Simulated scan of single mutants.
Amino acid sequence: MQRTIDWAEGAVVIIDQTALPREFRLLRLETVDELISAIQRLAVRGAPALGAAGALGVALSALRHKGKTGNVLADAERLAHARPTAVNLSWGVRRALAKLPEGPEGVLAEAKAMLDEDERVNRQASGRAAELILERCERRPLRLLTHCNAGRLATVGWGTALGVVWHLHDAGHVEYVFADETRPLLQGARLTAWELAEAGVPYRVLPDSAAASAVARGLVDCVVVGADRIAANGDVANKVGTYGLALAAARHGVPFVVVAPQSTVDPELPAGGGIVIEERADDEVTTVAGTRIAPEGAPAFNPAFDVTPADLIFAVVTENGVFP
């Protein structure tokens, strides 16, 4: 299976997520500038995939600027701040930079090792979460609800929240998955639905505004999502709309489970209030596929993420364990 992000013949190769589901297209990125552009326009996205992108970007720079440490450090700084909310991006950059004394090949070797590691730890984390959900939810088969995209497209090649679905589906424990459309860029309708269809998992896309109603009507046994940053106290930043789902789940006694690699945990951040929330362009809200749907000049409030307080979360699950 094609990895979401990989290294091939001196370049970073990604699945262009802006083209899905209409077209499956690979992009070959040969410069740090091209990679930063791909990150900022969401051609590659998802916290674990961004960690890999950060490391591979440092490798690109190290190979291009052999012996010029200052140039590599400057590129690394730009990469680390290409998107501010997901901690994995800067984590990947720092980890690759630590190998700079070993030369460009040392940096590249570390970045490649991180690709394999990402798949392994996400399988471990999602496997733990699947076991937890089976212990907590008596009904079989399960009806799950997820938000945004936390499948293989958000990682190197497996997934976090959707990784749970793959485990449960393989064991015959999934009745269906509700995939929130995830306004305004529709990562759920475009990407999660595409992954579920490809895997043969029964699913339905629903408007974000219908999710709380589905929970209230007893149509959901568990909500499972990924994360872009987890504070030391367990507060979780994820795609905007996650907080509302957590409120609905808490109100109706439905477990709300967060699945992420340990690299998404920011131990230096005491609580979610300190997470920088990326705000994106107005036209992501006021247009759809290039067609204007709001009056010309209409301003928009377009945060890419929100923060869910720890007391609304049943458990955070990483490859290292289950944290209630």
Rank of each mutant, 00 (worst) to 15 (best):
G253F: 05
R22Y: 11
L42C: 07
V307D: 12
A246V: 07
A193E: 07
V201W: 04
A304W: 12
T4E: 09
S37D: 15
D221H: 07
L100I: 01
L145D: 04
G10D: 04
A150H: 05
W194I: 12
A161S: 09
G67A: 06
E284Y: 00
V201S: 06
E34R: 10
S213M: 13
L89D: 03
A271W: 13
E30H: 12
P21I: 07
R28S: 09
R83F: 07
V322L: 02
L27F: 03
M114K: 06
G244M: 11
V215R: 05
A43I: 01
N149G: 06
V201F: 07
A62Q: 05
T182F: 08
L35P: 13
A281I: 07
R120A: 13
T192G: 03
A82S: 10
P270S: 08
T160C: 00
A237V: 04
D6M: 07
A111K: 01
L191N: 02
W194R: 11
A211T: 05
W158G: 04
F24D: 14
V276Q: 12
R94A: 14
D33P: 09
F314G: 10
L185T: 13
N238G: 09
Q2A: 15
V322T: 12
F178S: 05
L29C: 01
A86D: 02
